[in-house]
Write a protein that binds this DNA or RNA. Structure first.
Lengths: 373, 373
DNA sequence: GAGCCTTATGTAAACCTTTACATACATCGT
DNA sequence: ACGATGTATGTAAAGGTTTACATAAGGCTC
């Protein structure tokens, strides 16, 4: 007599199929209905030992075809799933990847998460998430996931300093960074070619005819920002335009800093015809500042951003910017980590994806009507 | 001789402090440097049994003050963290909560995640995330997290049908829904008072003097949408305005559906002065449609949304809408689930948070200039 | 047909906890 | 002074895997 239940098919041990059952110690309940099936249940039904069941699952080539068949049937009957806790305990490693970001509330985070999760799940891993809110103490808390064997690897986002400074010297779990090198390049990372991206932006502005292109940067020392600046410099250089430090400003990547940059430039004697911004937030701030002074974009000034945040398409005018291929970055980062977990050694120390120019409406040829200035 | 290492302080078992060590079976390595400390290491150093260590940690009141002190010192020395895998295995339940959403790439998801994570972590739980992309088969996959004891509870988002239809009858893990009842009310949920929110929107429009207010709904049968419609009806009724089905349209909650609704209305004989939309996406579509026809918002038409998505502030004009207190919803949902996990029975079957009206720039008094129409 | 190699399976230990039960000791009432 | 009661601690089993090692059987070579 076999009756099944959707979630976990029950199996009556008193049937003749289970002649082996009598030999082994009786389980708590004869009809193991409520508790999940264990490897032992499978072994009993398949009339093999638990070792064989384990092998049939994890090293199928090591068990005879006929036996494998019996085991698979027994698994189907019992609805057996291997207890991940027991497995992790025995193996000394879990099948979870911890993803730590400074702020999981950041909308930009979502799409990367998609890439990370898809790739992880495809390889039998799950993902655990945490956020530090830029609080090192808080990041430190997450270390316990590794000490307690709850996570096998770590995905770290740019800008976090998830563990205290001292700890940086200590051995970290297998980790991969996203966007930028973390801990001074101690771990491999997946990002975007910021230099190339910035170059695309500046080249677009140059192609439109702009010659006085301001760069609104971010003074916080992050490689991405430095590289975007390098792309800007290289673009101007290739066009034979000498650098003009009067129109290169450093902000902090916020909307407010973009607005502030506009105010500063208006106080100087040289105004640009275009603003190339280190990120979209800054670009939005620039647009707000320009709008407040009564200028129209792109008629009076052109503006470019970097990142392609979800809002970029909704602001007015829609922002021409450089897109971060977020889902792809997540996928790559997870793939790299998984490789690291199996091989032990990273094959690559840096993977840079190609960023695309997204042309919208914030760029046009420089205005010839200088009346307003 | 004691020398420490940042991550996991080493401890030389040969010191006099460890006189007990000799009595017990020797560990693999005398200086357990590479492998994390176990409860046994702590017990040895504290000169107590492992049972006492476990009790000192989990039932401190059950152990003598002096003993507790010794244990705590030993824990500090070894850097011991209890192995979550072993603990979960023994306890039969994990300290992870699975959060399943239809689309974790949705920017609205992020802030709820923040609330969920904060609350979970505060109670010693971690969160696992997954997404179904509205694929029931995919949702089914996540069931294995429970079968394999990797998750103790489940947070389900609106609109998912994470498990196959058959499975719905089966016993689900302890679960809490977000936004709406899931599985026909089978599990408690935390959401927002949609009726009240919609009422606030319609009352604002009425207060501005609008009398012909269109409602652009969502025909997909979701309680939230029905309730928002109820708020609309109730508001009109309270103002003594008879319902006019000619200006009530059903879309599907997308930008496109908002735009389409505008086209439909312009083909009828009765135009509204205001559009109350079931969600922000629809509202954005309506604004796009109206803009394409050359109308100005809010001069010619007023528009309201619902949800307060991150983009709402960036579109032009910034959208007046009803805010979902997302972080609070996440926090509440997790709190409810945690309660469920300890008590077994839910105290509440429905928790509705108060949504707030966010006044921006898409609403004004109805235009008296009807020339364009 | 003896010895040897290969292949398939079984036995049992180990991974690290938690906790029921047992034990030892101190305190108290009479 | 003794049994009863209570408190603090220890012993050992159990939870579900994986895998080193042992065993058994079959096929091969000479």
């Amino acid at each position: 007599m076999i009756y099944t239940d959707q979630l976990k098919p029950a199996f009556d041990l008193s049937t003749s199929l289970c002649s082996v059952a009598a030999k082994t110690a009786p389980r708590q309940s004869q009809v193991s209905n409520s508790t999940p099936a264990t490897i032992e249940d499978v072994a009993r039904i398949a009339e093999v030992s638990i070792a064989t069941v384990s092998r049939a699952i994890h090293m199928p080539e090591k068990v005879a075809n006929s036996t494998r068949l019996k085991v698979n049937q027994a698994i189907a009957i019992t609805g057996y799933t291997t207890n991940a806790m027991a497995r992790s305990l025995r193996l000394g490693r879990s099948n979870m990847i911890l993803v730590v970001a400074p702020d999981i509330g950041d909308p930009n985070f979502s799409n990367i998460l998609v890439g990370l999760e898809n790739e992880a799940r495809a390889h039998g891993y799950g993902i655990l998430i945490g956020h530090t809110q830029n609080d090192a103490q808080r990041g430190l808390e997450y270390l316990k996931f590794f000490n307690s064997n709850q996570a096998a690897g770590l995905i770290l986002f740019t800008g976090i300093l998830p563990f205290g400074h001292q700890t940086m010297t200590a051995r970290l779990p297998p980790s991969v960074g996203v966007f930028e090198p973390v801990f001074n390049g101690g771990i491999p990372y997946v990002g975007v070619d910021d230099t190339e991206g910035a170059r695309k932006a500046v080249d677009l502005l140059l192609a439109e005819g702009h010659r006085k292109i301001a760069f609104i940067g971010d003074s916080r020392t992050r490689l991405a920002y430095t590289r975007r600046r390098m792309g800007y410099d290289a673009g101007l250089d290739a066009a034979g335009i000498p650098p003009d430090t009067r129109i290169v400003l450093e902000g902090d990547g916020t909307i407010e800093s973009g607005r502030h940059a506009v105010e500063q430039l208006f106080m100087r004697d040289t105004l640009p015809t275009a603003f190339m911004c280190v990120n979209d937030q800054t670009a939005i701030g620039v647009m707000v500042g320009l709008g407040a002074r009564g200028y129209d974009i792109p008629r009076d000034f052109s503006v470019t951003g970097f990142d392609d945040v979800p809002q970029a398409v909704f602001i007015s005018p829609p922002l021409t910017t450089i897109r971060q291929p977020r889902t792809a970055i997540g996928k790559q980062a997870m793939a790299l980590l998984l490789e690291l977990l199996s091989d032990g050694r990273p094959t690559e120390t840096e993977i840079l994806l190609r960023p695309d120019l997204v042309v919208r409406n914030s760029v046009s040829a420089p205005s010839r009507n200088w009346s307003k200035r």
